[in-house]
């Protein structure tokens, strides 16, 4: 009985098209369904034998069906090349990313003050990211910057083989190291870009975010000039009536160092969860470049002073865009961008 069933299937397979075969055997009124219903009337031996044959046929047909549907999808997705000379304009409303818009405004503002925009690589040497910026290998300051490493390379040195591991830059200050290594002054540069930290990701913490930085190295500069510059920038960003205050901070590459805070844009100073009840939110950090950093690049720290100012542009961008979570900036979800 099972043999005749298999023979009949083989015959149909040769004569019918795949779709017809599937329909005839696997359809809602197909042969298989009929046979499965008949099974209960057969003797036990026959039931086993026919059951095996039915399952074999069913399996083969289902695989054929699956392949057919994938082929259909591929066919639907496959486009034919055509002449590209025809012009058609498909208008719509687009937008820049909130971080790009913020950077654009900042670049415009600081360009007017004579600052040049510079760039640097995202895969950075450990030297430019840490050692050149007065962050020794075994200093607790490195805890603030959990790092992503790129596969190490081995370099021959006088004292044997040394392993050098490049990193994904943890701050845009590494670009400052590159600018300082030019060895020329005055320096008046701004830079921005992506930075990476090995953080456990949640809606408010991401492994990648953006920073904006400024470096000004010249004779006769000091903290008062830096404070004036920041005050102007804050007025530009948050409006003329905005309140800015400065609190001591620690950054290994600057001393004195301070954090820049502005009146909370949500509670207007009365205290809310965003500002931890203080009425102020930290938007960036700044300071006078540490003499050790200047000396590393051959500058006379007694003659010159460097002013550095950095903004956490991702946080600033979410506030300006009215978003609640940092993750929304980097998900690519167009409903929020």
């Amino acid at each position: 009985m099972s043999q005749s069933l298999l023979d009949s299937f083989k015959k149909d397979k040769e004569s019918l098209k795949p779709d017809e075969l599937i329909n005839k055997w696997l359809g809602s009124k197909g042969i298989l369904k009929d046979w499965f219903q008949k099974l209960k009337n057969l003797s036990e031996d026959q039931r086993v034998e026919v059951g095996k044959a039915l399952n074999l046929i069913k399996q083969e047909l289902e695989e054929l069906k699956k392949g057919r549907s994938l082929d259909q999808i591929k066919k639907r997705l496959t486009l034919k090349p055509r002449d590209l000379t025809y012009s058609y304009n498909w208008n719509g409303v687009g937008s820049l990313h909130p971080v790009t818009e913020l950077h654009k405004e900042l670049v415009e503002f600081f360009s007017k003050l004579g600052f040049e925009l510079v760039e640097g690589p995202e895969v950075e040497t450990s030297f430019n990211n840490f050692e050149a910026l007065n962050i020794p290998e075994y200093h607790p300051a490195r805890d603030m910057q959990d790092t992503f490493y790129i596969n190490p390379i081995e370099v021959q040195s006088n004292s044997g083989t040394v392993e050098i591991r490049d990193v994904l830059r943890t701050h845009t200050t590494s670009i400052q190291a590159r600018v300082l290594s030019r060895g020329e002054f005055p320096i008046k540069v701004i830079c921005f870009g992506r930075v990476y930290r090995n953080e456990t990701e949640d809606p408010s913490h991401q492994a990648m975010f953006h920073q904006f930085e400024l470096l000004w190295v010249d004779k006769g500069l000091g903290l008062p000039e830096l404070l004036s510059l920041i005050e102007e920038a804050m007025k530009f960003l948050f409006g003329k009536d905005s309140i800015t205050r400065y609190v001591p901070k620690y950054y290994p590459y600057t001393q004195p160092s301070f954090g820049v805070q502005t009146g909370c844009i949500i509670c207007r100073g009365s205290g809310c969860p965003l500002c931890n009840g203080s009425g102020f939110i930290t938007v960036g950090g700044a300071g006078v470049v540490h003499p050790k950093v200047l000396q590393t690049f051959g500058f006379d720290a007694n003659l010159l002073a460097g002013l550095a100012f950095g903004l956490g542009s991702s946080r600033l961008a979410i506030q300006r865009a009215g978003l609640s979570k940092l993750r929304l900036l980097y998900d690519g979800d167009l409903r929020y961008l």
């Binding site: 719509g92 687009g94 820049l96 167009l334 961008l337």
Partner: peptide
Amino acid sequence: CGYLTCNGFKEVITKP
């Protein structure tokens, strides 16, 4: 970027 936004594109930033 200006040209693309004029043609209806939205800028995104994703992790590399």
